[in-house]
């Protein structure tokens, strides 16, 4: 088992109780999708897993090890094994695509080496390989902010591939992209999942994408898991429970 989350709670300083006892497990090689309304706690969940934020209580086990309270060097070692892709891409805009990708490797580089930006040939060829995986190696020397949204997201995926991650977290990776681009981005995640065997946990909004890519689904509502199972079993009724009576499914292809 790669990841085990037990009775996870998160209460923000503002008092918002964003996660209320979430428990689930993820096997190696799965493509787990988390769905739920805006504000249901999806981002909070992902951020607790790679410890961008501190869970209030509960346990996160990664690779058989309790990582809920580790700190410093130990935490960095774990973060290096977990890649993350964001809705807003979060690239360094003024830097080239290539240096953005190499940023994914920082954890295993010496501090001084990374500051003077003198990298070994292996690092460069690795970066190019990651860019090729997402089909964008021809843009290596271009400034990141000169790319389209879809291209930027591919660079962000390449950056996380640079970590050789065991687990890849994606927080609504296609929410600011058009439908066609969304699909192509999701295909890269699928490829990484199938060919590299990387486990993926992905927050998504569109059920059509969920049905197409997920091997398993978790639905959150107000910080609690209300559905866990196969994407095929989400019928009209479940849909209304997850998204509310008013909701209607929109198709995206």
């Amino acid at each position: 088992m790669l990841l085990k989350v037990q009775n996870l709670h998160k209460i923000y300083k503002s008092g918002t109780h964003a996660l209320k006892g979430v428990s689930f497990e993820v096997e190696e090689g799965e493509f787990l999708v988390v769905i739920g309304l805006s504000g249901s706690g999806k981002s909070t969940l992902l951020r607790c897993i790679n410890r961008l934020i501190e869970p209030t209580s509960g346990i996160v086990e990664f690779n058989g090890k309790d990582i809920t309270h580790i700190k410093g060097e130990e935490l960095r070692k774990v973060k290096m094994q977990i890649g993350m892709v964001f809705q807003q891409f979060n690239l360094i805009k003024r830097k080239t695509v290539l240096s953005n990708v190499i940023n994914g490797k920082l954890g295993s580089l010496k501090t001084f080496e990374s500051i003077i930006e003198k990298y070994s040939d292996e690092v460069y060829s690795e970066a190019y390989k990651c860019l090729e995986t997402v089909g964008i190696s021809d843009k290596a020397k271009v400034r990141a902010d000169a790319l389209s949204g879809g291209q930027q997201q591919r660079v962000a995926i390449a950056r996380s591939l640079m970590q050789n991650p065991k687990l890849l977290l994606a927080d609504e990776p296609v929410a600011s992209l058009d439908p066609a681009t969304s699909n192509s981005i999701m295909q890269y995640f699928e490829k990484i999942n199938k060919e590299l065997g990387t486990t993926v946990i992905c927050n998504l909004h569109f059920l059509s994408l969920v049905r197409r890519y997920a091997t398993r689904v978790i639905a959150l509502r107000a910080g609690e898991i209300i559905y866990e199972g196969s994407p095929r079993d989400i019928d009209e009724n479940w849909f209304k429970t997850i998204y509310g009576e008013e909701a209607e499914e929109v198709e995206i292809r």
């Binding site: 290096m80 993350m84 490797k105 920082l106 500051i115 962000a156 950056r159 970590q163």
Partner: peptide, 20 residues
């Protein structure tokens, strides 16, 4: 965002400041 992204890769504090 970029700061978060770089720290999520396991970079240390100095690297985060320098690169993000």
């Amino acid at each position: 965002g970029p700061v978060e992204a770089i720290s999520a890769t396991g970079a240390n504090k100095v690297q985060v400041v320098w690169h993000a």
